[in-house]
Design a protein around this nucleic acid. Structure first.
Lengths: 170, 170
DNA sequence: ATTCTCCATGTGATTTTATAACATTTCAAA
DNA sequence: TTTGAAATGTTATAAAATCACATGGAGAAT
């Protein structure tokens, strides 16, 4: 594990709020374990490792960053290894793809079925997941009005997180 | 500008509704011309051509499809040619990038300043642009609550358009 | 316990999407 | 008409994602 800006869980607005980040990781992993057991899914070593990697930061990671870390840990080193694990996690709601960034993030609410939306800080790259109403927004009005059947939504806001806004002020 | 082939678009997003498509293209081009003239922007041949290509369909086109058509028309044939024109159009609100598809579409409301959202049909690939009120969404509540400053939003719904839904029924 | 099958993993190659770097041209303003 | 900024063109390369096929391992069926 490298020494870098990732260990600052106590001080930073990661996910925009302070929290016990170690718990964040282990809780995430055990929630996933439980879910997979319940649903008869195979929570294999690669999949577990990828989720762990994602849980370690409240930022979106590109598939190739993940792949590098997998390699370091002795897993396969070709793109499909990462992409397949990510597909699994995304398909089962344990991770999300941030389309704007072509990158991935661990799900912050793996229990509830939800329609995720995201806030992406363009300064520090942190990403926070917000709960969003299934029936939210003008978009769903437009869809109703035209007869468009929504199956999935991508809702991502880019901007400045509270922490970075503070720093900019001063 | 003129001929209003667009009056059916007040209630139904273009793309899913019938309309005078020739007018759609020429109106789009002249709206862009006007806008660029007003704002002192250079609406050069490549940029004009790319917008024309996009206006010809209510679908998102990948940069390389656009590039192929540019080549056919005697423009430069290397990726930056397409990407730069697209950057220009996107930056000035004359086109939008559909993040989910890594593809581009002409703006359907080039006049108004707006916060676009999109409905993407996964069967026929058509894309309709809807107006979305950013202040109405659950996301903006979350942003307000946490102090996140939204600068830009990506709102894209994937699903089935009214036309394709009808076909599937039968 | 053995075999079989399915799914997951591993690997090499390739495709698709996007940008870097730099030369040349165009255009308008001084 | 010089000149400087913006636009275009080209070569090369980076970044993101998928294809195709071989190998391996867990569980069910025998």
């Amino acid at each position: 594990m490298t020494s870098d800006a990732r260990n600052n869980s106590t001080a930073t607005p990661l996910g925009f709020a302070r929290h016990d980040h170690a718990a964040c990781v282990s809780d995430g992993l055990s929630a996933a374990e439980t879910r997979c057991a319940e649903d008869g899914l195979r929570f294999t070593p690669v999949r577990r490792k990828v989720l762990e990697i994602l849980l370690q930061e409240h930022r979106a990671l590109g598939a190739y960053v993940i792949l590098d870390r997998l390699r370091e840990d002795g897993f396969g080193s070709q793109p499909p290894v990462a992409y397949r694990a990510l597909d699994f996690l995304v398909n089962h709601g344990l991770a999300h793809k941030i389309e704007r960034l072509n990158a991935f993030i661990a799900c912050a609410h793996p229990d509830e079925s939800h329609n995720p939306s995201f806030m992406i800080c363009r300064l520090c790259d942190s990403v926070a997941e917000a709960q969003s109403d299934p029936d939210q927004s003008a978009l769903s009005d437009a869809a109703r009005a035209t007869g468009f059947q929504i199956e999935r939504t991508v809702v991502e806001a880019e901007g400045i997180c509270p922490g970075c806004a503070k720093k900019e002020d001063s």
